[in-house]
């Protein structure tokens, strides 16, 4: 009995450590979304106003106007991006930022990894 208590605790500690590590080995969740095809981008407006949404590449060059100076109400909104640029060409794989502007001020930036 005296020897079994430390052994039990030891097994428990080992099991807990392994569980944590196995959980950590699960698919990584990155602070950005990985997309392979057209998708809807969701955003929340804190106020009503004139909204623009743009997509820029990893050189910070704008590739697409998703919304250009459109009046929208406060609250939840979404915009569809077909992964085409302003010339209707398919964009290259890579990292892209979507920026949301409200009345000319940038209020949100989101990162996406586009790979097909």
């Amino acid at each position: 009995m005296i020897r079994s208590v430390p052994a039990t605790w030891g097994r428990l500690a080992l099991a807990a450590t392994l569980s944590l590590l196995i959980l950590a080995c699960e698919d990584a969740t990155y602070p950005f979304q990985q997309v392979s095809g057209p998708f809807d981008f969701y955003y929340v407006l804190p106020d009503s106003g004139l909204v623009s949404v743009t997509a820029v590449n990893s050189y910070l060059v704008q590739v697409r106007w998703l919304i250009e100076n459109e009046t929208q109400d406060q609250g939840d909104h979404s915009v569809y991006w077909d992964l085409l640029d302003d010339d209707q060409q398919v964009i290259e794989n890579g990292l892209y930022f979507i920026r949301v502007y409200l009345d000319g001020d940038k209020i949100l930036t989101s990162l996406f990894e586009v790979s097909r």
């Binding site: 990985q34 990893s58 050189y59 890579g94 990292l95 990894e113 790979s115």
Partner: peptide, 11 residues
Amino acid sequence: ELRSPDTGVKG
């Protein structure tokens, strides 16, 4: 070169 988990952009 800018690499991400599934992409790489070279210039």
